[in-house]
Amino acid sequence: DLRKIPTSGGISVLLALFILYSAVAILEALGYQQLFPPITLLDWKALIVICFFGFFGLLDDFTDVGRITKVFLPFTFSLPLAIELHPNVVFLPFIGLVDFGVLYWLAIVPVYVMVTSNLVNMHSGFNGMAVGLSAIVIGFLLAKSIISGRDTIFMLTCMLGVLLGFLWYNRYPSRIFEGNVGALSMGAAIGAGIVANGFLVSGFVMLIPHVANFLMYIYWRIMRKLHPQDERWRAEKFGKVREDGTLEVPNPLTLKWLLPYHLKMTEKQVVLTMYLLTLVFCILGFFIDF
């Protein structure tokens, strides 16, 4: 009975982050800085961004915040981090380095983090999928940040540890769901880790499966608008479980439904396939400098 499973478990993710930050800050004040990665200014600003998105997700879990609010308000959540990022240079494939000046922190960073947060929220729906995928991406961002001597190492380390702990209870069969509060927090952490370290291109590569899922959704929306009476484009949020444990999904119009629409697969098999797909693109992104 899904109604008996907590659906806003992402609150525990935020709480765990608060505890870790507070504990390490106290230990640093007592002179034990050498025991942990230092908490930098960008780590603190990233925490603020994560909390903004998380609290907004919590609000969205319990009330309808409205479509316009969902689009425009999260745009402002990344500004505390964005104003600390210098220089404002972005590497664009086939073009090279481009200095965007004030547009970098006024537009590029807020849009990047907001979009990433929503991509993570959209690419979910199966037990352990969003949390596991986020842990994979954050793990590679952490390794890339350490090797290249970049920032937000503390935030990424904390988030990775928290997500791995949460995944133990969120994996199939899930005993707790992350909800919007968790999904938006995870996405914000990924987005903050990417922009704070200048990994805009490699971060995009790591998130290609998430982007593909979003593009499939856009395609469905367009086709539904063009053919509102066509049953192929009707709105469907859930599939069914057959007697043999495999999934029966209504269409192949999200990435997680694509394979089980054509093949007999269990939910666990689909989730593991999504893990593998993201792992491949994270490996590719890991070797891209920007």
Rank of each mutant, 00 (worst) to 15 (best):
V131M: 09
P252Y: 06
K45T: 08
Y112Q: 13
L258D: 04
Y217Q: 08
L119P: 09
A25G: 12
L156C: 06
I11H: 02
F91S: 12
E178D: 11
L255D: 07
Y32Q: 12
V120H: 05
P74R: 04
L30A: 09
D64E: 08
F62R: 15
D64K: 10
V131Q: 13
L258P: 04
W105N: 13
C158T: 07
L263Y: 06
L141R: 01
Y217R: 14
G66W: 04
I146D: 03
S117F: 00
K70L: 07
I136L: 04
G193T: 00
V280S: 10
L207S: 00
T266W: 01
M274G: 09
G191Q: 06
F286M: 14
M265I: 14
K144D: 13
E267M: 04
T266M: 02
D64N: 06
L253V: 05
H86T: 15
L226M: 07
Y261W: 15
D61S: 05
S202C: 15
A135P: 01
N197E: 01
T7V: 15
I222Q: 06
H210S: 10
F62L: 15
F36E: 04
I190H: 00
Y169L: 15
G239L: 00
L47P: 09
V241C: 04
G54Y: 00
I26T: 09
D1C: 07
G66D: 07
M114V: 01
G198L: 07
N170I: 13
K268N: 09
F53R: 06
I48L: 13
I5V: 11
V280C: 14
L58D: 07
F140H: 08
N180I: 06
F287A: 02
I108S: 08
G128A: 13
F56W: 14
V205N: 14
T254Y: 09
S134P: 03
A29K: 14
D99Y: 04
A188T: 01
V270A: 15
F238T: 04
I50T: 06
Y21V: 05
V195F: 11
E236G: 02
L133P: 04
M216Q: 11
R150D: 11
H210V: 06
A107M: 12
S78D: 11
L207P: 01
Y172D: 11
M216V: 01
F126G: 07
V98Q: 09
T254G: 10
S185D: 06
P110N: 06
M129G: 03
V109K: 07
I48A: 11
L97N: 15
T69Q: 02
Y169K: 10
F72Q: 02
D289T: 13
F52Y: 12
